[in-house]
Simulated scan of single mutants.
Amino acid sequence: MTFFRRRSRDRSVPPAVDPACGNETLALMLRQAEAGDWPALCAGLAAVEDPSELTWLVAGVSNVAGTEEGLAKAVADRPDSALPLLLSGARQISWAWEARTRARSQHVSQEQWRVFGERLEVAEQQLFEVAEREPDWLAPWYFLQISGRGASLDKEAGRIRFEAALRRCPGHLDSHRQRLQQLCAKWGGSHQQMHAFARESMLAAPPGSPLGELVVLGHLERWLDLPSGADHSYLTSPDVLAELHEALGRSILHPDYVRPAGWQSAYNTFAMVFALVGEKWTARQLFEAIGPTVTESPWHYLSGDDPAKTFTALRERCAK
């Protein structure tokens, strides 16, 4: 029986982080963003009908460094269009996190916090304006979840923004991922809240929903909080292993699962966790399905500087 849909993989192609996840539309938009061709990029976004895909594309473009000034000009040139404003708001969030870095809060300087806050404030203003102009759009509410968490807004504000996103796109995986982060202990939540949300979301969704990944992400967050030795014991405990397999079976392994744009992210998450717990056969099938496309998350948990190197090492370990 074939459990995973495999891709033909040329082993001569080394694994690498691909910001476009092999998606030709996003790859084109990334090139357009780098070139500052905002009219062409916005025309492409305007043709996208699926709200989840549109949000995913904007999120990808938001990570292109150095586009802030070009986007500010694009907003000024097209004041009646919400798309340049959406792109600018999303970019302000990524730009804010570039200033803050991934360092623990105690290692972030006052100047970094100041710049972080200023950029998030611009993002909030722009995204709320987009939401007012285009009340049916998912995208501004997705990004407002991220900016709100960064700005340390109260829990009620986070819940309202998450629910606003789901009213526009029920079952939106990326919004659920953001909500999971909001409920993490490191953002003022708790392990209990995080695990309850992940499991309840998975079970409330139909089989084949991608929301099973939330259970895995929750266990990885808990694993990160534990000291060496205790972390491995936690992930390999019978109860956690059972939940990992249940999540796999209800999501990407289920016959009703449909791969969305950026599907490689969930596969990378499952591959990493099953490699970490030593279930080589399952991890190997996932690595085969992924091919050479590495996503930065969750591999940055193991190696922030070189996710592809960590991916390759674990893939080779599971191949033996």
Rank of each mutant, 00 (worst) to 15 (best):
residue 7 R to F: 05
residue 14 P to H: 00
residue 15 P to I: 06
residue 17 V to H: 09
residue 18 D to C: 05
residue 21 C to T: 07
residue 21 C to A: 15
residue 23 N to P: 04
residue 29 M to E: 08
residue 31 R to K: 13
residue 42 C to D: 00
residue 45 L to M: 08
residue 53 E to R: 15
residue 56 W to M: 07
residue 59 A to K: 11
residue 62 S to D: 01
residue 63 N to V: 05
residue 65 A to E: 15
residue 69 E to N: 06
residue 71 L to T: 01
residue 73 K to S: 15
residue 76 A to K: 13
residue 78 R to G: 06
residue 92 Q to K: 05
residue 92 Q to A: 08
residue 95 W to T: 08
residue 98 E to P: 06
residue 101 T to N: 01
residue 102 R to A: 09
residue 104 R to F: 15
residue 106 Q to A: 14
residue 111 E to W: 03
residue 113 W to P: 02
residue 122 V to E: 09
residue 123 A to Q: 01
residue 127 L to C: 07
residue 128 F to Y: 15
residue 132 E to C: 08
residue 133 R to N: 10
residue 134 E to M: 08
residue 136 D to L: 10
residue 141 W to D: 07
residue 142 Y to T: 01
residue 143 F to T: 01
residue 146 I to S: 00
residue 151 A to M: 14
residue 151 A to T: 00
residue 152 S to C: 10
residue 154 D to V: 04
residue 160 I to Q: 15
residue 161 R to W: 12
residue 165 A to P: 08
residue 165 A to Y: 10
residue 166 L to V: 05
residue 167 R to S: 14
residue 169 C to S: 13
residue 170 P to Q: 04
residue 180 L to T: 05
residue 184 C to W: 15
residue 186 K to I: 11
residue 187 W to H: 10
residue 188 G to T: 06
residue 190 S to C: 03
residue 192 Q to F: 05
residue 197 F to G: 00
residue 200 E to L: 14
residue 205 A to S: 13
residue 207 P to F: 04
residue 212 G to W: 05
residue 215 V to Y: 11
residue 215 V to N: 12
residue 217 L to R: 11
residue 221 E to D: 14
residue 224 L to H: 13
residue 226 L to V: 01
residue 227 P to Q: 02
residue 231 D to C: 13
residue 231 D to H: 14
residue 234 Y to F: 12
residue 237 S to G: 09
residue 238 P to S: 06
residue 240 V to N: 00
residue 241 L to S: 11
residue 241 L to F: 09
residue 242 A to H: 07
residue 242 A to F: 07
residue 242 A to I: 06
residue 244 L to C: 10
residue 245 H to F: 13
residue 247 A to E: 04
residue 248 L to Q: 08
residue 248 L to I: 03
residue 249 G to I: 12
residue 252 I to R: 12
residue 255 P to F: 08
residue 255 P to R: 04
residue 256 D to V: 04
residue 256 D to L: 08
residue 271 A to F: 00
residue 275 A to V: 11
residue 276 L to D: 03
residue 277 V to N: 05
residue 279 E to C: 04
residue 279 E to N: 07
residue 288 E to S: 15
residue 288 E to K: 15
residue 290 I to S: 00
residue 291 G to F: 00
residue 293 T to K: 01
residue 293 T to C: 09
residue 294 V to N: 03
residue 295 T to Q: 12
residue 296 E to K: 14
residue 302 L to N: 05
residue 303 S to T: 12
residue 303 S to W: 13
residue 304 G to R: 14
residue 306 D to I: 06
residue 308 A to L: 04
residue 309 K to M: 10
residue 309 K to W: 11
residue 309 K to R: 11
residue 311 F to E: 06
residue 313 A to Q: 06
residue 316 E to C: 05
residue 318 C to M: 11
